[in-house]
Each structure stands twice: as C-alpha cells, then as structure tokens.
Simulated scan of single mutants.
Amino acid sequence: MYDLGDIIEMKKPHACKANRWQIIRMGADIKIKCTNCGHIVMLTRRDFEKKMKKILEKAEA
C-alpha cells in the first residue's frame, strides 16, 4: 500500500519523459509531484489507484 512520501510509477510517463512521482498529499484527493521537473498533479483517489503502476521506493519512516 502507498503512503505519504513514497516514490511511485504511473502507467503513462510525464511530458518531461520522467516516470517517478512523489506523493505529497493524501486525503480524498492525492497530490503527486514529478521528481524531474517539479510539476504537481492532483487526482482523486479512484483515478490515482487506476493510473498508478507500482511503488518504486517507500518513504523513510
């Protein structure tokens, strides 16, 4: 299961050709930030779960 601060991979890469995103906010909506260009995207939890491929790195405890 994903958590705040995790680095995740989405099914489609970002326009900057990177596919590493960090979860920066969780709630009813989930906010993710591209680790390459810093672009921030907010998705509903349902859309996020559909579009997420896998967790690359767990956040430090």
Results as ranks from 00 to 15, higher is better:
residue 19 N to K: 09
residue 36 N to E: 07
residue 52 M to I: 13
residue 44 T to Q: 12
residue 29 D to G: 13
residue 53 K to I: 11
residue 39 H to A: 13
residue 26 M to E: 04
residue 31 K to T: 15
residue 20 R to W: 13
residue 5 G to D: 00
residue 13 P to T: 07
residue 19 N to Q: 11
residue 51 K to D: 15
residue 23 I to C: 07
residue 43 L to H: 00
residue 29 D to E: 14
residue 46 R to S: 12
residue 26 M to R: 02
residue 28 A to S: 15
residue 45 R to Y: 01
residue 23 I to N: 01
residue 36 N to I: 08
residue 35 T to I: 01
residue 28 A to G: 14
residue 30 I to M: 01
residue 26 M to L: 08
residue 23 I to W: 03
residue 41 V to R: 13
residue 16 C to S: 01
residue 31 K to W: 07
residue 16 C to Y: 03
residue 28 A to V: 10
residue 8 I to M: 02
residue 21 W to T: 06
residue 33 K to S: 09
residue 7 I to F: 06
residue 47 D to L: 15
residue 58 K to Q: 00
residue 9 E to S: 15
residue 23 I to V: 00
residue 57 E to D: 06
residue 43 L to W: 02
residue 19 N to I: 01
residue 10 M to I: 07
residue 15 A to S: 03
residue 33 K to I: 05
residue 12 K to E: 12
residue 46 R to W: 10
residue 37 C to T: 11
residue 20 R to A: 11
residue 36 N to V: 15
residue 25 R to G: 13
residue 9 E to A: 15
residue 47 D to G: 11
residue 29 D to M: 15
residue 57 E to N: 08
residue 45 R to G: 06
residue 7 I to E: 12
residue 44 T to C: 03
residue 24 I to N: 03
residue 31 K to E: 13
residue 46 R to C: 10
residue 55 I to C: 08
residue 8 I to T: 04
residue 28 A to T: 13
residue 11 K to Y: 07
residue 23 I to K: 08
residue 43 L to T: 00
residue 30 I to A: 00
residue 11 K to D: 12
residue 21 W to R: 11
residue 45 R to N: 03
residue 55 I to G: 11
residue 42 M to E: 14
residue 18 A to C: 15
residue 24 I to P: 04
residue 39 H to I: 09
residue 16 C to L: 02
residue 32 I to N: 02
residue 17 K to A: 14
